[in-house]
Nucleic acid binder design. Sequence first.
DNA 1: ACGTAAGTGGAAGTCGAATTCCGGTTCCGA
DNA 2: TCGGAACCGGAATTCGACTTCCACTTACGT
Lengths: 210, 210
Amino acid sequence: MTATAHATTTAGRATAPVPPAAGTPVEAAARPRRGDAARNRERVLAAAREVFAVEGADAQMEHIARHAGVGVGTLYRNFPTKQALIAELGRQFLRDRAAVVEAALVAPDPAAAFEVLIRSTARDMAADTGLCHMFRDLPAEHGCVAEMAGLRSLTAGLLDRAQAVGAVRADLTVDDFEAIMTGLSAAITHAANWELFADMLLAGMRAPTT
Amino acid sequence: MTATAHATTTAGRATAPVPPAAGTPVEAAARPRRGDAARNRERVLAAAREVFAVEGADAQMEHIARHAGVGVGTLYRNFPTKQALIAELGRQFLRDRAAVVEAALVAPDPAAAFEVLIRSTARDMAADTGLCHMFRDLPAEHGCVAEMAGLRSLTAGLLDRAQAVGAVRADLTVDDFEAIMTGLSAAITHAANWELFADMLLAGMRAPTT
DNA sequence: ACGTAAGTGGAAGTCGAATTCCGGTTCCGA
DNA sequence: TCGGAACCGGAATTCGACTTCCACTTACGT
């Protein structure tokens, strides 16, 4: 369950080795790495997710390496620094959330979609309190800016739709909403019954009786 | 306001020096410290509060010492370890909260008292996001057990009273409530308009319309 | 099957921050 | 006013990570 492979952007395993050709100039284009190297990279990411989830952001690099069954050297070849590793995890995390929100965005009934999103998010949080706790403060500072922005704009859309239908009180900015989700995450981390919290949260967000 | 001196258990300043006498056996009895030393202790605590509030739990000891206008040596004479310093701050923090709850507990109208408590707590959190953020996770692990228990029992009383009057949904344990307050703290840390959050929270806690 | 560039492990180097130590300085009682 | 125990400051020590480095293995094209 924790494994969220996703082999995004596919693998440029084309037949053409593209030696020192004049292909994509400076971009982070394809990198025909050796098969096992790529495999190790995934292993490291998976291990990092698990270890960080349990020990928090100050888990030791060596611990992660051991958990992945590789040496620290390998770990550092894939991620030049601890921050880089965390950032990559953060990016994946945000991309996953964005996908969920995007799905809710195209659902027919805005109100229902909104409610479902809140509940499923709460469930997800309860399922992996470790990572949630870890990313509660971190992503703001380092990389992940693009992913953050993407998620936010999607969220804004969802919120708008819900407010347009009167399902959510109109005074409630995207920033407020994000803060609230952060709060939800913190609450769930401390006491795991997400169903109750999701209920209360939805009730609280409903437009106040005029 | 922040100073909580409390020269407990008085000072056994009897004429007898009590050499290797059989006075108080092993207890942490009186400690007739020198005047300036006590003063410095307070200064350190105040400085620690401020610095930790700004830089978080991983602020450097030397930074705190400098802010207090003393050397690190002095700091370590009062608190044998960084943890000890943090723990003391945590204890004071919890005692303060307990005092607030206790006040609400003796108010005439349970429902109103509950609401006022939530709102004032939210305001306090917004006023000192730094310390709230710091104690959101910490106190659980280290000392502060007694203070934690005290606060919790008071909270239980308050919650009971509010539920008895039907002001708060009956299914809501003290643990849930504490988790929710943690969540509120996190939300306020990320977006400071505590009034909105307090409103929504109160709405959410209200007993659902049957 | 071979050569070699890419990849690997983990010991050793670095560095930042907590904690210790001790010569000098100050309160406080007589 | 004096003596000395209590206290100070902050340089030096310790300790625990992160990160670097390099001799040794592999995967993989030919």
